[in-house]
Design a protein around this nucleic acid. Structure first.
Lengths: 104, 104
DNA sequence: CCGCATTTGATCTACAATGCAGAAATAATC
DNA sequence: GATTATTTCTGCATTGTAGATCAAATGCGG
């Protein structure tokens, strides 16, 4: 069982958090590319989302399709309490590791 | 080629940085267990150190053995500029991702 | 209107990189 | 030779990444 969330997993959860009720695949991906400044392939994103859900860090559900071109039904995501907890403890851990470190 | 350093890799580099000229296997491990609050097996640590060195983020050299019981020669580590750069850019990226995120 | 190109979105498959564990090896002192 | 400190080795688990494929909706030419 994975204890610590990996770096990319954290990034994904943060993007979901920020997007709130607009968090589904496409915007999540855009958000990460914009904020984190790194390219994200669809495959990388969804497999990570699936793994996070399997761990209970995220939950997801399908919404009714929207009446737009290509308006297939979207899978929305929400960060669960366990995910919040994992995020904040990872952050605190990094703060402790950085504290007092002077760069060369 | 690994582009982004993983989470544990960052932790290890931070421990090496903090320890300065006292950074070899045993204290690095102790430092991580103490600050990060998580158990670290020897294997996990050295394989990570090796990978970081292979990427040019760390360098290492062997010092003369110390005159102590079991005083085998120690392998010391130093964080290279590329490592510093990787650390700071990872941190900035996380800051951007966290910025403005409200929990629950 | 029928059928197909187009669009948005999600899933699948395969592989690479990183994380983790514990046993074994090495070299020194007692 | 037993003990101690330290590093190396081997194997497997988890996480990261890529790109092709599948799915379902609308738009449009005929």
């Amino acid at each position: 069982m994975g204890e610590h969330p990996g770096e990319f997993e954290q990034i994904v959860m943060l993007a979901v958090l920020r997007l709130g009720d607009k968090a589904y695949g496409v915007p999540i991906r855009r958000e990460i590319e914009k904020r984190a400044g790194r390219a994200v392939t669809v495959g990388a994103l969804y497999s990570t989302l699936d793994r996070l859900e399997a761990k209970g860090y995220l939950s997801s559900w399908f919404a009714d399709p929207v009446p737009e071109r290509g308006g297939r039904s979207r899978r929305y995501f929400r960060v669960e309490p366990a995910g919040i907890e994992a995020l904040t403890s990872a952050r605190q851990m990094f703060d402790r590791m950085w504290k007092g470190v002077r760069l060369a």
